[in-house]
Design a protein around this nucleic acid. Structure first.
Lengths: 225, 225
DNA sequence: CGGCTCGGTGAACAAGTGTGCACACATCCT
DNA sequence: AGGATGTGTGCACACTTGTTCACCGAGCCG
């Protein structure tokens, strides 16, 4: 008669947690496992349910206590990452009006943040055009929120108050896309190549400066330097 | 004894083809099958070898006559798509100096091309940050070629001859990224929504105009000691 | 305390997967 | 012509996958 040592949900800490708290904990473990596996090269659509639960340290069937299927987990993942990344915007909001040095500074902060949360950014940039149509749409919506917040911030900072919101959002969409591309590039270069990182960062700064240069000159008087 | 009607490589045409030609034909069929499956929502890393050969109309083991594994096929796919897309650049090269109407025109041509080759663009934008590290690197290289060609063209057209190649490539990299993002957006919107397509196209045109506006106003290093 | 809820478990299944092997047969090179 | 080459085939194997089912036992509510 084998001793069935079943039901050992949280071997880490012996603290007695509430049952709801415990549920959300393993739920977060599943989401975290997805991010971890993705950061190891797997792309989300190629993740298997079993692989995921293995990484999370639970039995495959436990998955269904939290999500109907992988798509649902994907959507939850997008939402969580979106929240995390928008927290970044709030932090970076402390910067000022877009002048050159401010851009350089913001870029440094941003890239530092990217490097500190590689799994989230890898997932965001990876599945932006990779996953299921539903997931793509969700990411697009999230990026849209991001872009709109940035536009609102620029307006509030008194940047080009003459421009209609439409134009401002067009500009911010360009900025956000550039930021995400830069994040993807940064995460892909070999870790022990500070020179490449410098070049990439300089490139990134240049692109943003170019964009804001164009934004400042947008619809300005033609032929008046 | 059952009649084994084996070895029927090409049931389509009875024309006797050279054996090497036949090989390349099924090779292209495999690549084509990959594109087709991807255009149906599958992302490349989630494609199975059997699914692919099924779509291509060959037996699974025949795959190994052409590629060692799926990764190798992926790289071949990237290369083929890169060639196809660079052909586009040659066509679009007939445009002139970047003025506003020229940009609008080029955008129209580009989007038309995107819509005419949805599978290639879907694959390119989808796996740009999605696939295996090797695949990402390959796509990055391909995009780099694209970007360099564009920079060379701009130079040859006499656009900002005072700018160093580095800056020009920085600008073109921004343009290329914007183009790919636009392609991804275009392919993702519902097919029966011309209004959304118009808005997206206007957005795209605006972003490119913004970039070139900034590029025209760009001045050399503002003092970096 | 006693029953109920419900997150987690293990066993089981059919279906699909990658890959090795021997074989057919059209094409090519002597 | 005749043998060599090499692409496509069929079969086989071990393995993983998603999903079902009954069951356990801790947490919660009366």
């Amino acid at each position: 008669m084998a001793m069935k040592t079943s039901s050992r949900p949280v071997p880490l800490d012996g603290e007695p947690l509430g049952r709801g708290a415990r549920k959300q904990l393993t739920r977060e473990r599943l989401l975290d496992a997805a991010l971890t596996l993705m950061s190891r090269g797997h792309s989300f659509p190629s993740l298997s349910l079993r692989e995921l639960t293995r990484e999370a340290g639970v039995v495959p069937t436990a998955f269904y206590r939290h999500f109907r299927d992988m798509d649902e987990l994907g959507l939850a993942l997008v939402e969580e990452c979106g929240l995390t990344l928008r927290r970044l915007l709030r932090e970076a909001r402390k910067g000022g009006v877009p002048t050159h040095d401010i851009i350089r500074h913001s870029v440094a902060i941003y890239l530092q943040y990217v490097r500190a949360h590689p799994r989230q950014f890898r997932a965001a940039t990876s599945e932006r055009s990779g996953g299921s149509p539903a997931m793509r749409q969700a990411i697009r919506t999230e990026v849209g929120h991001f872009m709109r917040e940035m536009a609102q911030d620029l307006r509030q900072l008194g940047f080009r108050p003459d421009l209609p919101s439409e134009t401002l959002e067009m500009i911010c969409s360009l900025v956000v896309n550039t930021m995400l591309n830069a994040a993807s590039d940064i995460l892909d270069l070999p870790p022990e190549q500070p020179q490449l990182a410098r070049e990439l960062e300089a490139n990134f700064v240049g692109q943003l400066r170019l964009i804001f240069l164009g934004a400042e000159q947008w619809r300005a008087e033609p032929g008046t330097p």
